[in-house]
Amino acid sequence: MDGNIFDIKRFALHDGPGIRTTLFMTGCPLDCLWCHNPESRVHFKENGGKSRKVDSTYVIEELKKDLVFFEESGGGVTFSGGEPLHQPEFLVAILKEMKNNMIHTALDTTGFVDRSVINDVFPYTDLFLYDLKVMDPEKHKKFTGVDNKQILDNLKFIFDNNGVVRIRFPLIPGYNDDKENISDMINFLKDLTNSPIIDLLPYHRLGISKYKKLNIDSSTEFLSPSSDDRIQEVEEMLKINGFKVGIGG
């Protein structure tokens, strides 16, 4: 089965536990102003994008290559993007094969997808790396182009079904690092789970050069990363509320 990917990165250290190989899949239904992987949204080498069409058997072979290191480190494969759930059949085909090989799987997702797709991948996903960006529906729509109701509902569904989740919270100065957003997030998550784990992902400027390369305008071009003090403040807020916090992915 064919699918579209834009990279396979081995010895990826920031996408879940242990030594991992990350598959970057093309295409995303969201349009986040701060996206650091803009190439994921560009299809088939348009505008210099790296997206390529590949067969799932090829991908499976590539993903299995570091098996020995997955085993030694408690690592595995991470599906990222883009939005991996954007290509559900391709993804499920690969996920199944990973589980046949007893490889740990992590899914880095926005959660903006039909429930049926979550249902399809759920049995083969060991860990959801689930993005929570903005709690306020209006702002979410404004910053990402889509409504967050489905995202929040799906997250609840995963928790209700005892899925293992790490929340990924990209900290974008001026967009979602305000107190209100953070307390909304805390309250929402506390209802879902007793032991929330959250990764704070401070905004970095690595994506900027990609925008230039791709000839895409970026409205966050002049955004600076959060200060270390601010990151620490947010971290404290989360910790006081019983969250386990990681910095960076």
């Binding site: 250290l13 242990g18 030594i19 290191f69 030694e72 690592g75």
Partner: peptide
């Protein structure tokens, strides 16, 4: 965490 990954890298290479 980084050191643990390097250890795994070494262990993996030595397994091979």
């Amino acid at each position: 965490t980084s050191l643990n990954r390097i250890i795994s890298l070494i262990r993996g290479y030595f397994r091979l």
